[in-house]
């Protein structure tokens, strides 16, 4: 490839990357600034931590933080855990595997709001699930399943929508492991679980991390699923933020927004690092070994 002048590159990147950086930068900046009292739409502006104090003192704030983390974490982990066995099963093509994979990935194409409606329709008071449960005799009478307080319906919907995405990422990663590598492990005595733990998971850890992070951020900041099928006694962070915004309490909305961004970042890092630590400690070990060798060389 050619090495052009930095000016040309800057010029070319400006409309695309430049616009993105300015836009997202401005959004983040405004969120942070408003959370500490600047850019007020009404009244005086100026540095104050008052809205943070108020926010952090609220029980509902901490409930929302815990609840959103709970949803984000479990949506990510369950989706990935469900996608792995399927990705491994579909690793080698067989008759009908394309159909299976297309069927499984179909929820990717269905809009979240539509999915929420389909789900509501199924679990409604006179819906097919209630009817089925009464028919099997497990329920005596129809039960109210919508907006269950345990958020099981919401989690189900999250996994329904996100598992295909994890599957998409993991299928590619799993397929790029050569059969010889897996055969070598098996030949040396590794059974199915050991092969997963020592070969498959470490080799697909990047895809696993990507899936965990993206699903986590998506579910952490969920608004539509929460407001349609989620429990009514708790609010997600996005819902909480919109609650303040719709009342014109921008400073508090900004505080929640900053929380959301910070949690996205922190959660993503924690998930990625944990996944790597569980399945791939070696690189760290190798860095230490390398460091030791360097030290020895330096001393001698």
């Amino acid at each position: 490839m050619i090495r052009p002048s930095p000016w040309l590159i800057t010029l070319l990147l400006l409309p695309g990357i430049g616009l993105i950086v300015v836009f997202i930068g401005a959004v983040i900046y405004i969120a942070i600034a408003q959370s500490i009292g600047f850019y007020n739409l009404s009244g005086e502006s100026g540095f104050t931590l008052e809205s943070w104090d108020k926010l952090l003192a609220r029980k509902s704030y901490w409930t929302a933080v815990r609840y959103s983390l709970f949803i984000g974490f479990w949506a990510a982990v369950l989706s990935v855990a469900a996608a792995y066995p399927i990705a491994l099963w579909l690793r080698k093509p067989f008759k009908g595997s394309l159909t299976v994979s297309a069927l499984l990935k179909a929820p990717l194409m269905i809009h979240g709001i539509v999915a929420a409606f389909l789900f509501l329709n199924i679990i409604s008071f006179n819906g097919i699930v209630n009817q089925f449960m009464i028919w099997t005799g497990l329920f005596d009478a129809p039960r109210r399943l919508q907006n269950d307080s345990g958020a099981w319906g919401l989690l189900f919907l999250q996994v329904w929508k996100n598992m295909p995405f994890a599957l998409l990422l993991l299928t590619g990663a799993v397929q790029s492991i050569s059969q010889d590598t897996l055969n070598a492990a098996q030949d040396l005595g590794a059974g199915a679980i050991e092969r997963f733990r020592r070969v498959i998971a470490p080799l697909t850890v990047s895809a696993m991390q990507a899936a965990l992070i993206i699903i986590f951020i998506d579910a952490l900041a969920d608004f539509t699923f929460q407001t349609t099928v989620g429990p009514t006694n708790r609010q997600s962070l996005a819902q909480y933020m919109d609650f303040f915004r719709s009342r014109g309490r921008w400073n508090e909305a900004a505080g929640v927004g900053v929380t959301l961004m910070a949690l996205s970042l922190a959660g993503a890092i924690v998930l990625a690092v944990t996944a790597r630590l569980i399945f791939r400690k070696r690189p760290i070990g190798r860095v230490l070994a390398w460091y030791e060798i360097r030290n020895k060389e330096a001393r001698s």
């Binding site: 993105i20 997202i24 608004f223 961004m261 996205s264």
Partner: peptide
């Protein structure tokens, strides 16, 4: 940097974009 819009939750983007619009 090109991936930034995918990382910031859209709901945050939406709300503070309106804030900028008001400003």
């Amino acid at each position: 940097a090109a991936l930034l819009p995918l990382v910031v939750p859209t709901f945050v983007t939406a709300i503070f974009f309106t804030s900028i619009l008001y400003q």
